[in-house]
């Protein structure tokens, strides 16, 4: 499973959302829109996911956003994903939300814990400005302790500089 696919799917959904708006097909458009965007064709078929499920949140909207090297500010792409995450969280769940901050291996261990705390906080603060209740949100800084990609090249590091939104305790996890 690649994460970049989720990003593409998320952007396609955003476009679908802009043009179609919320309607009978769901908040962000129909499953057919997803297929038209060319996503969900490998691995788990996200085309068949119920948009109210956490699986949909994780795989179709995308449960993570990415950061530039040694930065914790949100990119426009990250904000677009977070907008959809917030909309989904307000619509489909009242479960507590945990935001994990992570860093790549190109930094010292203790600094990276603090850097990943900043990244998780940037996501949390953004979600609060978009209307999520702060009391529903918590963060954990993982530093460089839990990479998801393990090569020592930018293509992996870019996936590891991330904040992951974990919807806890909800049905469908």
């Amino acid at each position: 499973m690649t994460r970049s696919k989720y990003m593409i799917a998320g952007l396609a959904l955003l476009a679908a959302g802009c043009s179609g708006g919320a309607g009978d097909d769901g908040l962000f458009g129909s499953d057919r829109d997803l297929d038209a965007a060319g996503s969900g064709t490998t691995g788990i078929s996200s085309a068949n996911l119920d948009p109210t499920t956490v699986a949909y949140f994780n795989q179709v909207i995308g449960d993570r956003v990415f950061f530039e090297v040694d930065q914790s500010n949100l990119t426009p792409g990250a904000m677009a994903v977070l907008d959809q995450q917030v909309a989904w969280l307000m619509q489909n769940s009242s479960a507590p939300v945990l935001i994990e901050g992570h860093a790549d291996e190109q930094g010292t261990r203790e600094y990276n814990i603090a850097l990943s705390a900043r990244r998780a906080a940037a996501v949390r603060n953004y979600m609060v400005t978009k209307g999520l209740s702060d009391s529903r949100l918590s963060t954990i800084p993982y530093g460089k302790e839990r990479p998801i990609e393990i090569c020592s090249e930018e293509r992996c590091w870019s996936q590891n500089r991330r904040a992951v939104t974990v919807v806890t305790g909800a049905a469908g996890v």
Binding site: E110, I113, A114, A117, R118, N125, S138, T139, P141
Partner: peptide, 26 residues
């Protein structure tokens, strides 16, 4: 504190100096 890390003892062993985080700032 939300998070604590990076501790070291003082030379007399009576204190710890460390980083505390409030969830955002350290």
């Amino acid at each position: 504190s939300a998070v604590s890390f990076s501790p070291r003892f003082s030379p007399d062993g009576r204190k710890i100096v460390m980083s505390l985080g409030d969830g955002s700032n350290t």
